[in-house]
């Protein structure tokens, strides 16, 4: 049986790891290589590493640093930030990334995503979906003034045959007050592609609720690991109690 994945998310600002709240006020939390080392020794299911400022600051991700992070990992690693070309993807795969996470370029250029899928296969192209609630429903949060609903974007990317979505609730980011269950069910009902959900996990009850009320198979978290004593294993032990399949 497929196990649910508990995935630490490391967000990077070009210098160190940061954690945001509602995509703002980045707070320094530490050194990415150290974190990778710790998560590897804890046998986490997977790791996500994203340079969240690369695209807006118009710079490339620091390949040397990413290589040092990946070097510590004997589990799958997904890398995102500032990816604009087939070469950018190639550079990341060459140093051992298993998946790349694309957001800005996916909003701007659907053809590029199709091309990337053809070239590298669906399985290594993940799409970041940053959702926020508006009076007209959930939309994609972006700094490009692109107005697109979550549903339209998910459908477009599903047609491009991408391998996975990383769905982040901007409203819940860093708030640690529970997942946006409505958003998550909204998304997983429109696509058959795996979704990693993120944003809102703060205590064990939140994870119980997430896996009881949705059919999602993967969750990404940051704040709970940075700011509480809970580890990915604690979450799994808790889920095991309610018969959610986990890898321990």
């Amino acid at each position: 049986m497929l196990k649910v994945r508990i995935i630490p998310i490391l967000t990077f600002n070009g210098f160190g790891l940061v954690k945001t709240k509602k995509f703002a006020n980045p707070r320094m939390v530490g050194n990415p290589v150290q974190y990778a080392k710790v998560y590897n020794s804890r046998g986490v299911d997977e790791l996500v590493f994203v340079d969240i400022f690369a695209s807006t600051q118009k710079r490339k991700i620091n390949l040397k640093l990413v290589a040092d992070v990946i070097k510590e990992c004997y589990m799958p690693v997904a890398i995102g930030g500032g990816i604009e070309s087939i070469n950018d993807i190639n550079d990341l795969l060459k140093i051992g990334a298993d998946k790349v996470i694309i957001k800005t370029k996916a909003l701007l250029d659907k053809e590029f995503i199709k091309q990337a899928v053809t070239f590298f296969g669906s399985q290594c192209i993940s799409i970041a979906v940053d959702a926020y609630a508006t009076s007209e429903g959930y939309k994609i949060f972006n700094k490009l003034n692109i107005d697109i609903s979550i549903a339209d974007f998910i459908r477009e990317m599903t047609d491009c045959k991408v391998g996975e979505f990383v769905l982040m609730s901007v409203d819940k980011d860093g708030m640690m007050d529970g997942f946006d269950i409505d958003l998550i069910n909204h998304v997983i009902n429109i696509t058959n592609i795996p979704v990693i959900v993120a944003g809102g996990g703060g205590n064990m009850e939140h994870y119980n609720e997430l896996f009881s009320k949705t059919n999602v198979k993967a969750v990404g978290s940051a704040s709970i690991f940075h700011f509480t004593q809970f580890t990915p294993l604690d979450i799994k032990n808790e889920l095991k109690k309610i018969n959610i399949p986990v890898r321990i």
């Binding site: 049986m1 497929l2 196990k3 649910v4 669906s122 058959n192 592609i193 795996p194 979704v195």
Partner: peptide
């Protein structure tokens, strides 16, 4: 060709 399961088959399985 799966009706109720995600494709790709992604993650840890026994």
């Amino acid at each position: 060709e799966l009706e109720h399961l995600n494709v790709p088959h992604m993650g840890w399985n026994n």
